[in-house]
Structures are given as C-alpha cells and as structure tokens.
Simulated assay, not measured.
Amino acid sequence: MVMGLHPQYLSSFWKTQYLLLRMDGPLPYHKRHYIAIMAAARHRCSYLVGLHMGEFLQVGGNPAWLRGLHCAPQKLRNLNEINKLLAHRPWLITKEHIEALLKPGEDSWSLAELVQALVLLTHYHSLASFVFGCGIKPEEEQDVENNCWAPSPHSDSSPTSDDTMGGSGGTDAMQELEVLMERMKLLQENQLEEEGVTQEEMATRFELEKTESLLVPSSDILDPSLQSNIRCFLEDPEFGYKDFTRRGEQAPPTFRAQDYTWEDHGYSLINRLYPDVGQLLDEKFQVVYNLTYNTIAMHCGVDTSMLRRAIWNYVHCVFGIRYDDYDYGEVNQLLERNLKIYIKTVACYPEKTTKQIYTQFWRHFKHSEKVHINLLLLEARMQAALLYALRAVTRYMT
C-alpha cells in the first residue's frame, strides 16, 4: 500500500520480487524464503521475518528449520558471514568469502545459486530499511489506522491550510523549504560556472561528507527485548554497521565508482549468471532514480534531479562509494542535518528509526514525498551492497 503511492515504481518492484521468489531460478523456493528470513533478521525486522516464515511453510519448507539457524542445513548456515557483512559492512567482502562458499564439497554453492542468494540478501536488507523508514508494522502491532507513519501533521493537506498555521513550527518549516528551493536554484546556475574545482578539492569534499556522517549516533546496545523468533536466526547479533573513521582504525579504502560501476560491470555479470534479474534490477534502479512529479511540497514545475542525486550519492557515500565527477558540496547544500540523520539511520541501522526522526525532516513535504525518499534509499542501498558483492565475485572469477 505504501509503495502504491508511486505506482510506476511499485510495478517494477513487484516484477523483481516475483521473479526472485516465484520464477525459475537456481535455488528451490523454500530456500529463497529462508534466505529472506536470514536477511530480515539481521535488521530485527519482525514484519518481514514473520511474512517469510509463513511463505516458507506454504512452499513446503521444513518447519524444524524455523526453530533457528542452528536447525538449518549447513549450506544455508554458511551464508551467515556474507549475510552479516552485506547487511552492515559490505566493504569488507572479499573474493575469499566468495571462494569459501564455492569450494567443492557437499555443502558448496554453485556460482548461479550464490548470485541469486546475494540478490535476495541485498533485496531484503534494503527492504527492511524501507519497512522501518516508513514505519510499517506487523499486523498484531497495528492500531486500525496506523500501519505506517501517519503523514506529518501538515503534509498532504492543501497548500493554503499551511499558511494559516500558527506557531513557529509552521514558519520554520516554511523557511527550510524556501532555503532548499533557493539553494537548488543557485546550484543549478552555478554548475555552469564551477568548472575550476580541482580533483583534490572534490576528494576532500567527499571525505568531509563521509566523516560528517558520523554525526549520527550509533547505539551499540543490543535491544534486550529482541523477540526470540528473530534472535534464533542471528549468529553474532552484536555485529552492526561501523562508522568508517573511528579514531585509530583503518578506514576502508574508498570504492571509486568509476572502477566498478553497475552499468558497466555489475549489470553484465548478473545478466550472465541470473539473466532476467539483471534487466529487472536495472529497470528498478532507473525508475526510482528518474521518478519525479516536478513538485516539491506545494511548489510545482520544479526540477528535482539534483536533490534526488544528492540523496542517492549520500547513501553511497555512507557506504564508502565515491563518484569522481560529483561535487559532494551539493550534498551539504541540499540535505539538511535532520534529513542526513534520517538517511544514515534508515540506510545503516534501520531498526533504530523512530517516528520522531521521520517527522523532523522536511516538515512541509507530503507523506508521499517522504516515501519517495525511502524508495531512493532502498534502491541506493541495494545497489551499493550489490556492487561490493559483485566486485568480489568478479575478482574471484578473474
């Protein structure tokens, strides 16, 4: 229902998910659902875990496996390490991880099976981000109306009602909006003039954004109330996203997007090993990246491409991926602090998303526009993790 606010995206999403779970592919159906459970459990996403436990049984999965990962076949348990890394620190994935899963033996994976598994894992990690980002809850936790974050108090209402809002909240939010519109306009005009920025300066701006994303508090405390139906699918539950630049630690090397791109490398590799899915993923990335209604809050006829790109590139930035030809100064100009906090939380530790951080950013925007951001987050995150995984597969093959 929530994705349905953007019908064009929803249809692309459905096609991909249907192919992953229901159509011919190297993995048997029950294992696909089990992999979905393993992925969703990494982010404590009881909504998706519950959903796929039901699906797993429906396609004839063995109920004993649902007692926990320790009851699943070794072959599936072997995915635990790569599941963990993909969910929280994809930059650590190496060709050795791929090699370990493919090495001959009774529990070994074929390359085609592994690629399907990698797509499923990244699909469900990022879907967990969407679920938490939009506040979607399992039915037993819903009140009748509230199955996701309600629209912000004054969004989705007619533009005129905003003008009558008393109190400072309304005016602050209006100012935020006007500042954003103004900055977009200035950036669009300046792009023509800013030819002279050096590569060094561009790299510095990226590093600045990467470090600044440390603003976001990451709590290392494991929620003690973690439901047992999720805990049983987790090994090493304390393992989570780690900020790049904790003092005294080696930051992961920046992944230069130019060296391994989705368009030139990832897409063709998947298309070789899992043909139709490459096509559908590509379409889904394109749809969301280009999705626009040319509106912002109550303004119409706006070119939002710059804003969409800033959000996409910021998500890739918190996962260590840098575009040489992008000026990360734009991220700073266009994404207010509350929005950055929200993006970082939903992309890196979605289980910590709260209603409060959802309502605090873009207070004048429509609920559907905030859902649009979550779609960008979902796809940018999925692409980032897939790039790391596929790069490791490519290195293993070469």
Results as ranks from 00 to 15, higher is better:
78 N>Q: 09
375 L>K: 09
145 E>M: 13
61 G>K: 03
174 M>P: 01
306 M>I: 14
188 Q>R: 15
347 A>D: 00
339 L>R: 05
105 G>Y: 09
314 Y>C: 02
139 E>Q: 11
382 M>K: 14
191 Q>L: 08
86 L>M: 12
43 H>F: 15
200 E>W: 09
294 N>K: 11
335 L>W: 01
297 A>M: 05
176 E>Y: 02
387 L>C: 07
370 K>T: 10
158 S>A: 10
209 E>R: 11
388 Y>D: 07
83 N>T: 15
381 R>G: 12
211 T>S: 14
176 E>R: 14
237 P>N: 04
388 Y>I: 05
16 T>G: 05
141 E>T: 07
1 M>N: 12
72 A>L: 00
107 D>M: 00
79 L>G: 02
18 Y>Q: 11
26 P>N: 05
23 M>E: 14
229 N>S: 15
385 A>D: 01
167 G>P: 07
130 F>C: 01
192 L>D: 06
13 F>T: 06
327 D>G: 04
147 N>T: 12
386 L>T: 07
38 M>F: 14
363 R>F: 03
55 E>Y: 07
89 R>I: 04
101 L>T: 03
81 E>N: 15
151 P>Q: 06
385 A>G: 08
213 S>G: 01
51 L>G: 03
281 L>C: 03
292 T>R: 09
93 I>N: 06
28 P>D: 02
53 M>A: 13
239 F>D: 08
128 A>D: 01
58 Q>A: 13
357 I>R: 03
293 Y>K: 15
148 C>H: 15
140 E>G: 02
341 I>H: 12
363 R>L: 04
374 N>L: 00
39 A>D: 02
26 P>S: 13
388 Y>E: 06
300 C>G: 14
68 G>Y: 04
343 I>L: 11
234 L>R: 03
267 Y>R: 14
292 T>H: 07
27 L>N: 03
102 L>W: 08
24 D>S: 10
88 H>Q: 02
62 N>H: 08
238 E>P: 05
312 W>L: 00
156 D>P: 07
394 T>Q: 15
224 P>M: 07
390 L>D: 01
215 L>M: 11
40 A>Y: 04
192 L>A: 15
67 R>A: 06
184 M>I: 12
397 M>T: 09
328 Y>T: 06
366 K>D: 13
46 S>C: 01
264 D>S: 14
155 S>G: 13
349 Y>D: 05
308 R>H: 13
10 L>V: 11
180 L>Q: 10
229 N>Y: 01
304 T>H: 01
352 K>L: 09
265 H>F: 02
296 I>L: 15
229 N>A: 10
198 T>M: 02
125 H>L: 07
107 D>T: 02
359 T>D: 13
350 P>A: 03
40 A>P: 02
371 V>Y: 00
123 H>M: 11
392 A>H: 04
33 H>G: 00
276 D>R: 15
84 K>R: 15
36 A>V: 09
396 Y>D: 05
11 S>R: 14
273 L>F: 09
375 L>W: 06
270 I>V: 15
100 A>D: 11
3 M>S: 13
237 P>V: 07
190 N>F: 08
217 P>K: 12
93 I>P: 05
222 L>Y: 12
267 Y>I: 02
165 M>R: 13
35 I>H: 00
235 E>M: 12
214 L>N: 14
241 Y>V: 06
123 H>R: 14
321 I>N: 05
